[in-house]
Design a protein around this nucleic acid. Structure first.
Lengths: 116, 116
DNA sequence: ATAACAATTAACTATATGGTTAAACGTTAT
DNA sequence: ATAACGTTTAACCATATAGTTAATTGTTAT
């Protein structure tokens, strides 16, 4: 069992891990769209879109605005910042001790030089 | 069926979507560690660690250096840049037309003002 | 050679994705 | 009221995670 100490990041990164969902987000970055419209470029069935949207909404990456029978999906920029911040923090940490890695890599090179 | 037009990003984001794997990466950012050591903080069994490492390696986020019976796991910084770049690109896109969202949000506010 | 140790593989369980089609629900028209 | 449309839910299938324990492989000692 895993402690879910940061479910937000879990959901955000997971939502971003699927190419269809990333494409949906990119499409949405040009403006809102309805469920059916979002599926068209991938010839994706409405139920399939609904499922992707459920994950995107659970990650808070998109927001839904119901207008009659149409559901307009919009981008929500905030969560991406969280992901970005995690990456920045992570990057900062290993940056502090890159030497470690460099030593490791040069060691590899040394070994590989043996065989041509 | 989904076209895997960008498997790299798929794997990177997916690897980052699990809190245990993120914790492993954070731990590795202080320096290399063996498989058993990586599991200790979470009382995670070696086979479980092995599975996480398989995903981290498939995303190229870590590199393995076998030294006798010990496997030292190291961070590989490159893939994170890819993720970071995707996010930057995505951010840039919706930044270009934030107006769209603002209009949407103010519309919401207007509606919510109706109810105390 | 054999025992001890590090790590992986195998086999299993439970749960979640990602997709489908068919049925149900809500809204907007006629 | 009823038909048409947009979306969701239900039911199903195949595959992948995330974990377990037990068995296997590989390395280093005695």
């Amino acid at each position: 069992m895993v402690k879910r100490y940061s479910e937000d990041l879990d959901r955000i990164f997971f939502a971003l891990s699927d190419p269809t969902r990333r494409a949906i987000l990119m499409q949405l970055s040009h403006g809102a769209a309805t469920v059916f419209k979002l599926g068209e470029p991938f010839s994706l069935s409405p139920p399939a879109v609904t499922k992707h949207l459920k994950l995107l909404e659970s990650a808070n990456l998109v927001v839904r605005k119901k207008q009659g029978k149409l559901h307009y999906i919009h981008i929500n920029p905030e969560p991406v910042k969280e992901a970005s911040q995690w990456i920045a923090q992570y990057t900062a940490m290993w940056n502090q001790q890159l030497d470690n890695l460099e030593a490791f890599l040069s060691d590899i090179q040394t070994k590989e030089k043996g065989e041509t």
